[in-house]
Nucleic acid binder design. Sequence first.
DNA 1: CCGAATCCTTTTCGATACTG
DNA 2: CAGTATCGAAAAGGATTCGG
Lengths: 143, 143
Amino acid sequence: MTRLRSGNPPEAARSTLSQRFDAWRTRALDAELCPVRDVLNAIGDKWTTLIVMALAAKPQRFSEIRRAIPDISKRMLTQTLRNLERDGMLAREVFPTKPPSVQYRLTPLGQSLLDPLAHLVLWAESTHAEIKSARRRYDRLEK
Amino acid sequence: MTRLRSGNPPEAARSTLSQRFDAWRTRALDAELCPVRDVLNAIGDKWTTLIVMALAAKPQRFSEIRRAIPDISKRMLTQTLRNLERDGMLAREVFPTKPPSVQYRLTPLGQSLLDPLAHLVLWAESTHAEIKSARRRYDRLEK
DNA sequence: CCGAATCCTTTTCGATACTG
DNA sequence: CAGTATCGAAAAGGATTCGG
């Protein structure tokens, strides 16, 4: 499998990249069959990436994750953890103490998501000011 | 502004990475103030990334984008294009022909998203089989 | 402590009809 | 051609209650 070698693709690789984007979009319209749609659909919700990031440091218990993401509800935490477990991104281990404790840890597959995620987050950090500025300008002109 | 220098961070950078994830999550709970939440919220919807990928090749007209993404409705295409324009990711140019034609092109800011997006898409492609397999196994055991 | 179940609100999205 | 306006369905998310 080919890999990107540098942070920003050189201008020369642009056409190759966009051809690949075309292939990635048009492989199939069905979300189930298109890796891009399927995966972006899986991690594009409100909490998934935050939970993966919280578990990057170390395995954590249900309550620890809640403290790491204070504004998530128990319902959504449970549901998002289940989805991630279903996708093989994390493993759930129950310790039959009383009261019970449950630990979640990233699987190797889940760990492998951290790298592309880091790229995205660095991009978010470095462009956030510019994006907010663009929004202000747009809103000032439009309304 | 810091930039990633190589495609995959070496294993040695992992602990640094998770510390940064912590910082990125806890900087602020308000989506407006947290770059990660704000940006993931902006590109995490159903159509945004597909549109950006479609425009990677070259500037395109409204109808061309529709053909590139056959299952998007006019309503959602318009709305998503507006959001991207508001965020400074693309520029809209109207040619006052009759009937009118409108062209959309990625700005430099929009182009800069292609790189982290490519990492994510490569990851999606290379892990999709494993994810689908994990789902089948989970569904077989649970239900 | 962890989580299932229920109910309800908000958001997102799609279909349709209409316009310069 | 490139939208806008309106409506309703569906999905996502939050609050609350109950249970092992």
